[in-house]
Amino acid sequence: MIRFEQVGKRYPNGHVGLHELSFRARRGEFLFVTGHSGAGKSTLLRLLLALERPTSGKLLLADQDIGSISNSEIPFLRRQIGVVFQNHHLLFDRSVFDNVALPLQILGLPREEIEQRVSEALERVSLKDMGEQFPSDLSSGQQQRVGIARAVVHQPALLLADEPTGNLDPRLAAEIMGVFEDINRLGTTVLIASHDLALIARMRHRLLTLQRGRLIGDGEPT
């Protein structure tokens, strides 16, 4: 599913985001990426989303080489990915339903199918009856769940999450992680960038540890 082969990312100002990073993730795998601020977690996610290109090495996502993919192919690559952000990135002038429906509208699915899939996605994150509400009416935890529903509504092959529990209390964080595990059980590869080591330790999934752009650990958390 994901293949990093000696991937490097050097910015024009000389800063090295990633240094010869190599790892693979199978389809349906659940993995965490951790590290201090500046370790390269965000760079890794940005590369997977084709927001940036590697400056060396080879990065394959679903057999597509992100280093050489054309700009016009990028939107179609991103349609295979769901993204969850720490600050949700919801559209506050649209209802919960419309926020979640956005990826499906972009895919050009028929209205009936959109309604059905959005309803299923909201049910999965326990927000079934909140489709008509607006994000500003919801708590931070509920907003995060709307973000998750939007990320999975188009049934992506890969789900990326950047500090998805950063603003949540431990109970809500565990709840959100439970949602990710449910999604993973259905075959979606899940990659979460987080520095919450306690939470990661409880989940007992594969953990990649980055330090200054280098991979210094790959295995189950101890």
Partner: peptide, 9 residues
């Protein structure tokens, strides 16, 4: 998965 988006693995 009923309909994967274009380019699914």
């Amino acid at each position: 998965r009923q309909q994967l988006p274009r380019g699914a693995e």
